[in-house]
Design a protein around this nucleic acid. Sequence first.
RNA 1: GGGCGUUUAGCUCAGUUGGCUAGAGCAUCUCGUUUACACCGAGAGGGUCGGGGGUUCGAGUCCCUCAACGCCCA
Length: 1043
Amino acid sequence: MTTFNPNDIPSRFDFAEAQNRIFQMWESGGYFEGDPKSEKPPYTVVIPPPNVTGALHLGHALNNTLQDTLIRMKRMQGFNTLWMPGTDHAGIATQAVVERRLKEDEGKTRHDLGRKALVERIWKWKEQYEERILGQLKQIGSSCDWKRTRFTLDEVCARAVRHTFFDLFQKSLIYRGKRLVNWDTYLQTTVSDDEVFSKTVKGQFWHFKYPVIDPKPGEPEYVIVATTRPETMLGDTAVAVHPEPDRALDRVASELREKLKKSSDSEKAIVEGQLEALAARREAMLPKLEQLRDMASDGRKLMLPLMNREIPLVCDVWAKPELGAGCVKITPAHDPNDYEVAKRCDLPMINIMNRDGTLNIETGVYSGLTMKQARKKVVEDLDALQLLEKVEDREIELPQSDRSKTPIEPFLADQWFVAMSELSQSAIDAVVDGQVSITPKRYERGYLDWLGEKRDWPVSRQLWWGHQIPVWTKACESEAEVQPLVEAIQALSGFDETVAAIQLEPCEETDPEKRAKLELPFASIHVCVQSGCEEFESALEGLGLIREEDVLDTWFSSALWPHSTLGWPEQTPELACFYPTSTLITSRDIISLWVARMVLMGLNNCGEVPFDKVYIHPKIQDGFGETMSKSKGNGIDPLDVIAKFGADALRFGMAHLCTETQDVRLPVQFECPYCQHSFDQTKKNRILPKVSCPGCKKEFSTQWAESEEDKRLEKGAVISERFETARNFVNKLWNASRFAMLNLEGYEASPISEEDLTVEDRWMLSRLTSVSGNVTAYLEDFKYADATRELYEFAWHQFCSFYVEMLKDRFADETKRPHAQRMLAYSLDCLLKLLHPVMPFITEEIWQNLARICPERGWADVETANHCIIDAAWPALNPAWRDEAIENQFALYQAALSDLREIRNSQNIGNKKKVKFSIKCTGDIADLLQPLGIYFSRMANAELVELGPSAVAPETSATRTTADMEIYVDLDGLIDIGAEVKRLEKEKANLEKSISGKQRQLANEKFVAAKPDLAKEIQTSLSQAESQLATIADSLQKMTAKL
RNA sequence: GGGCGUUUAGCUCAGUUGGCUAGAGCAUCUCGUUUACACCGAGAGGGUCGGGGGUUCGAGUCCCUCAACGCCCA
């Protein structure tokens, strides 16, 4: 190794070079690895596995910075830490991305490729993005145990999924049922509610007449229903009317009156109009509505046109008497509200659609048509029958699939469900009992409310990318087939209930004739197979059973993450050591989807909660308060921030903005690739393929560049200037340590006795004690912003601006030098450790350099420093070193210094000009200030000529006062009287304001009676202020006289 | 529709249980290259704490109400 020369240290930290080198050193040194055999107490965090859909964004950078900061502190505190890394297969999101790519690049659909080939393609995509994601996490500095990296679709996780599914199936907590789903006819899959968006389009509102069968005298021959989707009438199974039209109209009216009270003037007219219309309607329609209600109660039936099917007239609250004719057609299999009506009224549900969006055989002559074709034909046919009453133009809300941008069809499909009642309750109890705490506490409510609904969890997804459901099914045509098949299956499994679990699902259609007509089986046999029984699976297929094609909801595997990654269901040493994990750090949008499900699955599978603390961090928005996303163009790549500012600055910036609020704003800038000028992103320029730099006027490309011409331009980075503060802080720390190393030549370690400590040494020890205690407590409580603020303030304005400055004088004195060196090495050592969790790279780099000059450090007890800072012992200073008296003493010095500097500035005295000054104060104060008096020279180029009660103001002087002192700067030959008068007048005004405020308070008898202690304090500060005022007034008078 | 959050200096945010002249960083202005750092140092200016009402001796802080913005659930 070449000899280390502090003079060679550059004045900037070369983070780009250091980050990779240091990370490799940590990783190859095994510092990230959790040891299941360790004697140390475990501390475990599982990463919220990022989706392999794409690259990481700034939200991930925040999330992982917080986890890494915590795990690094715990590692230094002596815990056996494990941060478990991995990625999520993210079912539909990933499959959709790959399918879209396939369509764009090759014009193919997944059906052209087939299941096997498509899944292979997605695996390739996954490999590519996983590598990129893990690379990004490492660049951030994440100290995960990378050898343990898991993927929610890998063998270990798959085994856990299969065991869980089998267990729940066996307990009958998994069952098969029908459910109305959002069907994407293009992708031929269900999409979740949050992947559906509503689009307002121009459409029509058709009014049809349905004939009444055998109307009684006085009853209408037709009822009128209205719809925006005529084709669905082929699947109608009822028409509903309101059971209490009278009361329903009353309620609407009273709601309108409530609204009227709250309305602004402009709205009032509209609401009043609505009320009048309602009253008129009531007058005209109520008898008819009541008649319809009576007809429904009497069991009157209607003839569904075109299909010639008898359908009932039913009573249900879904019908709105205030709208249209007051009747609503019910299509249970193709409308969510109608589906609910059908469940309430026990109506049949007729599915009229094939998976590709065409109409099925239920629709007779319409079979095979697309929805659009069917709509046209249905309207024409009804019109021909003179059953079309009228058509209105109207704006309608059309649900669309976010993935394929095609209309969503509500569709009744077979789905697997997890029964949630018991499972949810266990997860509710865990939080109510305090086994799991959620920080900030306000998020508990959403968690509990969501679980409290105990809605069954539909877990099947009609996708190819995911955990295929391990169930084999066969339909039995008759009752006679059932028993022999069950017996055959049991025999094949060797009557082993740990291999196969069987469920019998009877057909919900009990009428054998109807079953035959609709080609429905008598019952279905479902066999769930445990993992590792491939031969049995083949044998089942030999019996004619077919494997379920659907895969599981992504959250099913995510729910197992804390234990599946540790090897469950195997009772591995890792599981024994690291489960339950300690803390989960995530963002609020997945509290119910993920956190709640992990709790209940952890309890079900392991009998213990998966973690005892959950911390929910804020979400990052751009300067406009919008969430960042690639599709908006305001997304920031953490790697761009790292390239410009360094990983430590990114991390410090992230932690610094992590307050208890819900959202934090981070204004976004473009950075010109030519001149490095950065300027604000606007809603306009963030969507352009190329942007012109306002600095150098050259054009650069953005993420939207598509044309060859645009792509040839240099690409501009998207960054945020908010990281500049953090970058500057990194630089400050780097240079403070550079100064230290330049002055530690000849360092020798040896203990310092307590009596030899100077005032500033004791002050530094006191500060270090407070700061280390505060930072520890803040981080334990997830108060990241408070921790970074404390560290920033301490490192910059206390350690650098005062302590290091004061040490300079002591370094110049040979006799004081060795002592000063030891104190500097010790305090820097301590500061680096406190900063390490947030700023790991620079602290490690400085640590390693420091060790070359002073490998042994400490003031009372000298020890050899740990080889790496990453597992050095976390500072735990003796609380006895916290010394308020010393800190107050120091504050006196700082106050005097601040006044001196202000005089220099207001009098415009150059730094090189030495000034003389005196301080008038009590003898006690003088004793306190005395030892620090020499430092006025270095810090303000000012010489203290007199200190104590007898100090007097020179003839021409500037005067400042504090509560404890009067400061006179001798300005003979220097003074700008005008400036001084102005300054004194301002000071006088301030004091007068302060005095009158205090006087008012003390004149308030109730206050003095209620808070005597506080009143006493104010009384004291009032007399001080009055004495200050006297001094200032006196000076002002003298100065004014000289004008 | 229900729930949650936010509104404090030009910008981004702190502000503990109500209490003395409401703080920080960035930006602005003035001065300054004293060899760790100009990604620096010293200083200054800048706030009717979203509007209205209430409780209180006293409100940025507690309560009510209105407004704007954001998020989650239906």
